[in-house]
Amino acid sequence: MGKVKIKKQSTIIDMTAMSDVTVLLLTFFMLTSTFLQKEPVTVITPPSVSEAKVPDEKLVQVLVAPNGKVYLNMTGAKDSTQLSTETFRKEVLLDVYGDRKPGLTQKQVKEFCNLGTFGMPLNKISEWLNLPMEKRDEALKEEGGIPIKMSVKTTTEDGQSAAGQPNEFQIWLKAIRQVMHNHGLDDDLRGGHLVAIKAEQNCPYSLVQVVMDNLQTEKLNKFTLMTSLKQEAEE
């Protein structure tokens, strides 16, 4: 009576192949990923049939929160010989800030260059940049927002209406124009893809209108609205 021989099978599985696959996947995700931009408010953009993609360079994004607060985000060119994001931000900030008091330190300027979306009244920027990282976002939400209210038109004696003092949003736009111009990027300035407005789909039009009015005042008549893709069923 011979016993049935059971082959002893090894329970060890060779994980090398599995490892190969995971590393490949990992590489794919690392190379294709663009990280979610941190924004002070999350907005859901309205759906549209438009298929044009948001450019990933030379973009000024205007974020309109549902409570009417406005934030900015600036991205420079990808091409390193052109205006980089850091230089773009630095020069715009210095242009806007001018010789306001208190002056900005080198460190504060450097901090600013590495930030994402920002939006603080000019007199609070210095204070805001001194805050630790964690508190900055909160401050943006609580007391942030670039002052954008259109200034009242003044009428001079001979009946000509002149635009009032530019508000801070317009000062930022002016600085952006100036910096773009200095770097010979006038074409991008006029191309109509520089400014993108990102607003919540259910917000009243008046919030967006203020931004548009300001852009028009600064002669930026061409811009884009950020939307999400909607599939339009064929007839």
Binding site: L26, S33, T34, K53, G192, T224, L225
Partner: peptide, 29 residues
């Protein structure tokens, strides 16, 4: 493999695959 899987999960959750669309608009001066 364990570690790789964790990293993959991280990247998958942090990426935005879908880019926003834009709608061009031209306003009169």
């Amino acid at each position: 493999v364990d570690m790789n899987m964790l990293l993959i999960t991280f990247f998958m959750l942090c990426t935005t695959m879908l880019k926003s669309q834009t709608l061009d608009l031209v306003l009169p001066t």
